[in-house]
Amino acid sequence: MSLPLSHEISRREVVTAAAVGVAAAGLPPAVGGQAAGSSGSLPLSLTVNGEHRRLDLDTRVTLLDALREHLHLTGTKKGCDHGHCGACTVLVNGVRINACLSLAAMHDGDEVTTIEGFGRPDRLHPMQAAFIAHDAFQCGYCTPGQICSAVAVLAEIEAGVPSHATGDLAAPMTLSSGELRERMSGNICRCGAYSNIADAVVDVAGRP
């Protein structure tokens, strides 16, 4: 039995209704005029490489994306984005962290140092110069994180921070390649330049 004309539904109407339903199902429900799950923005003040910067960021933005996408400091690299490779290593108040695992909102008032803050082409940081002298990179993608981590390693040893794995503490003048490899194990070099990286860092550690 055919339906009255007013109740007949065309194929186009069925497809359109289904598409609208699927799209609506993918949207979070609105709460107070704002989609649920949206955290809004937050004013943020950072000192980055000695320069005071003010940002207004979504609270879900990572420190890595804040540096790269909002401050355009692209020396800090996005590798795995899961804290496994160390390409995004930066220093926060002198302590090395994976910027991809930390929300920018957690660092209001902090001092952040990226690879851009270590030296200039005409005045390289000693660690940067050592990496060049020892050919401690190939593709170079991991190098900014490696250098940031290496600088922090020497600062940790000088401050008396023992190795997390062994509890050992070596004087910078006698830093062994083995201890250095353990301390730098969070920084992955997919090109396999580990020996040259170790040589560069030990070289800097042994300087007066």
Score class of each variant (00 low, 15 high):
Ala99Leu: 10
Gly94Ser: 07
Gly37Leu: 08
Ala66Ile: 07
Lys77Thr: 03
Lys77Ala: 09
Leu44Cys: 10
Leu3Arg: 14
Ala136His: 11
Cys189Val: 05
Asp135Ser: 14
Val48Met: 06
Gly37Cys: 08
Ala150Pro: 01
Arg120Met: 12
Leu101Ser: 12
Thr166Ser: 15
Leu124Thr: 05
Leu103Asn: 06
Thr62Val: 08
Val201Lys: 00
Cys88His: 10
Asn98Ile: 00
Cys142Val: 02
Thr76Tyr: 02
Gln34Lys: 14
Thr174Phe: 11
Gly40His: 04
Ala129Asp: 09
Gly167Ser: 06
Pro208Asp: 14
Thr174Tyr: 08
Pro4Asn: 12
Gly32Leu: 09
Ser176Glu: 10
Leu44Gln: 04
Gly33Val: 05
Val22Tyr: 13
Ser39Lys: 14
Tyr141His: 01
Val201Phe: 11
Gly32Gln: 08
Gly86Pro: 08
Gln128Val: 04
Ala200Arg: 04
Lys77Val: 04
Gln146His: 12
Ser163Arg: 00
Cys85Gln: 06
Ala136Phe: 12
Leu71Pro: 05
Ser102Ile: 07
Glu8Gly: 03
Thr166Met: 03
Ala105Pro: 01
Leu3Trp: 15
Ala155Phe: 01
Glu13His: 12
Ala150Lys: 00
Gly145Gln: 04
Gly178Lys: 13
Ile9Ser: 06
Arg60Ile: 02
Gly178His: 14
Asp81Tyr: 07
Ala152Leu: 02
Ile197Tyr: 11
Val95Arg: 13
Lys78Glu: 15
Gly160Ala: 04
Gln128Met: 07
Ile9Asp: 01
Asp56Gln: 10
Ile157Pro: 00
Ala87Thr: 11
Tyr141Val: 09
Cys80His: 06
Leu42Phe: 02
Thr59Tyr: 00
Glu51Tyr: 00
Val22Gln: 13
Leu55Thr: 07
Ser102Met: 13
Ala87Asn: 09
Cys100Ile: 08
Glu156Ser: 01
Ala205Met: 06
Arg190Asp: 05
Leu101Glu: 11
Ala205Asn: 05
Cys191Trp: 07
Gly160Arg: 01
Gly32Glu: 13
Met1Gly: 14
Gly117Ala: 06
Val153Ile: 15
Tyr141Glu: 00
Asn98Tyr: 11
Leu64Lys: 07
Leu5Gly: 02
Lys78Val: 08
Val161Met: 02
Ala104Val: 11
Ile115Trp: 01
Ile97Glu: 01
Ser10Leu: 13
Val112Leu: 12
Gly32Ile: 04
Gln128His: 11
Thr113Phe: 06
Val31Pro: 00
Gly109Asn: 10
Gly75Asn: 07
Gly167His: 09
Gln128Glu: 08
Glu13Asp: 15
Glu111His: 14
Gln146Ala: 06
Ile197Ser: 04
Asp110Leu: 01
Met106Arg: 13
Val204Asp: 01
Phe131Cys: 09
Gly145Ala: 03
Glu158Cys: 03
His134Lys: 11
Asn98Gly: 12
Gly178Trp: 06
Thr16Glu: 15
Cys100Ser: 09
Ala129Leu: 11
Cys88Glu: 08
Thr89Ala: 13
Met184Ser: 08
Val15Asn: 01
His134Ala: 01
Ile197Glu: 08
Glu179Tyr: 09
Gly109Arg: 07
Ala155Leu: 00
Ile197Lys: 02
Ala205Val: 05
Arg183Val: 02
Val14Ser: 07
Asn196Leu: 04
Arg183Tyr: 06
